[in-house]
Design a binder for these strands. Sequence first.
DNA 1: TATCTTTGCTTAATCGATTAAACAAATATA
DNA 2: TATATTTGTTTAATCGATTAAGCAAAGATA
Lengths: 345, 345
Amino acid sequence: MSNKKKTTLKDIANILEISTAAVSKALQDDSRISSKTKEAVKKVAKDLNYQPNHLASALRKGKSNLVGVIVPRTNSNFFSSVVQNMEEVLNKAGYNIIITQSNESYKKECDSIDTLLFTQVDGIIASMANETTDLDYYEKIKSRGIPLILFDRGENDLNVDYIGIDDYASSHMIVEHLVEQGCKRIAHIGGYQRTRIFNNRIRGYKDAIEKHGLPLDSELLLESSLTQEDGRLKMEQLLSLKTRPDAVYIAGDYAALGALQVLKENAIDVPNEIALVGFGNEPFTAMVSPPITSIEQHSAEIGRLAAQTFLEHVSSPDVKQSLNKKILDAELIVRDSSNKKAFLN
Amino acid sequence: MSNKKKTTLKDIANILEISTAAVSKALQDDSRISSKTKEAVKKVAKDLNYQPNHLASALRKGKSNLVGVIVPRTNSNFFSSVVQNMEEVLNKAGYNIIITQSNESYKKECDSIDTLLFTQVDGIIASMANETTDLDYYEKIKSRGIPLILFDRGENDLNVDYIGIDDYASSHMIVEHLVEQGCKRIAHIGGYQRTRIFNNRIRGYKDAIEKHGLPLDSELLLESSLTQEDGRLKMEQLLSLKTRPDAVYIAGDYAALGALQVLKENAIDVPNEIALVGFGNEPFTAMVSPPITSIEQHSAEIGRLAAQTFLEHVSSPDVKQSLNKKILDAELIVRDSSNKKAFLN
DNA sequence: TATCTTTGCTTAATCGATTAAACAAATATA
DNA sequence: TATATTTGTTTAATCGATTAAGCAAAGATA
């Protein structure tokens, strides 16, 4: 019953009256161990339900085979899909992952980093919290000498690998799509300017607007935390303008959802009165009414690439980390919230 | 630059020309170490950016201060909220968590358990995958002698702690609410019968239907995987009945969403023609149109309770684990999808 | 002054697995 | 037959932190 004591190499060794070294090697299929011994060892190991002590081997080998993952939230489809695909690739290579969430808080993010370093992970794959501007903690990872890979929310200054989509180009795609729909006054509810990806989206928006000779009105460009609630507030703000926009591009789907609610509450015809575009292609964008046009970020591919990048680093540890961006093309998923043409039928 | 070598106790000991034992104790504020030595040690530790090697101390102390968490998915608000609150409580007690997701797959769940045991976690808090019926792997956790706590998706047969809501009573609440709305033919798209919580919801549904003297028609009770897609299929099935139901209670919000889409596609008036109730109170239930009535499961409280239960076990390791259920009352959140009265105004 | 306590530290064993080095026995080579 | 090589295993050190046990020096007590 109280089979509390875990079986160790020593137990197996004692039973077979051989050394623990022989047992260890037998379990690793070392060529210098006779097949007779190997079989015997494996049989006893199985009988005793032997589970190797990971702490001991990790300590000895100086590697834990654990990869730390830091995401702002897990309850977004984007991050959960990234993580899932990352896990698949890493598991195949013998790594397991530890997921931690920063909840968009800088403090929590620092704690996560400490936890992961403390757990002796072999590397960290992270997407930074919105709040994060101070990079000291990330430098701490680098100075530990383990690979650091960023995705989605990254920072050039850290000079590490980064996997993400082309935010600047995505904004262009969106604006062009809206122009095609005949929109002439396009607003942008963007993320925090200080966050690189949101800044890129803002730049892309501005440049695309200018490119098409549209008004770049400062009251049409708002900075937002991109929560659902703030999406509501910012949309209300836009509706209170003397001249309302005829299209709103919002840098996050949750905020876009909040905005859509406000539009519906105000009985505004979407897309004909105001067209709406989100960002991230969260599943609910397809589910609400009208479905929201959004940008697919290829989360699965980002996850796989991040994992592969990590594996490349561990397989050639001498290569110094440097700024190495892998930028994927995003895809515009047009839905009813911006598709005026669909209503012409 | 290549400050790769991690600082160890030995490095500090060498610098101060004292033993590693003294350093270790100094860092732990052992009463037998002079304050002079303590200060010196702490200063050097800080200067060298000393980070204790968790593997070594965990190996020696026989505990890792890590708690493994297994959830079916992370991209549901329920699970992510549970985990977040669990983490908060555990962090305060000096534990860190490792999250793994089973993706509702039994095989993946077994892998997760192996990973966590391999990582020498001090305990496991889990919600079982839909697929899981074989409990061998969970028995493996118990035989390891570490606490196992289940939440939401549990199993009486395992005889461990369980935290969840009263599914049976929740079904009663829902049926009663629908009866109040004047519904007379209430269908139920339930989860897998073999899963305890879904079975309880089904039992609750049946008993409540009988209690109110309504028809307990077998064609009104469907078994579903409760994915959005299957929600669509099962709703279509209900619509194809000779006599359609006037209310549908669906045991999961994602499936309820799929069902709602089908209803809207068929231009059916919700709630007046068919009322709809989901389960789980996922954020999107409030966001779609019409908003879906659902059951709030008090995820935060479940997370906190699960964590506290784990902590109780580690603080009194002699207490043998036994079936110990903590059942919370659920709350019915009435929204437009079932609120006919709202439309009478 | 002699003995007992307390203080402050060191020594050495330990957790469990891994692995370099050593070594005996078996086999191959000259 | 003498030597070299291969095979199969053991010995012992190691990873880094912890801790029981030991011990000398300082302080307290009789």
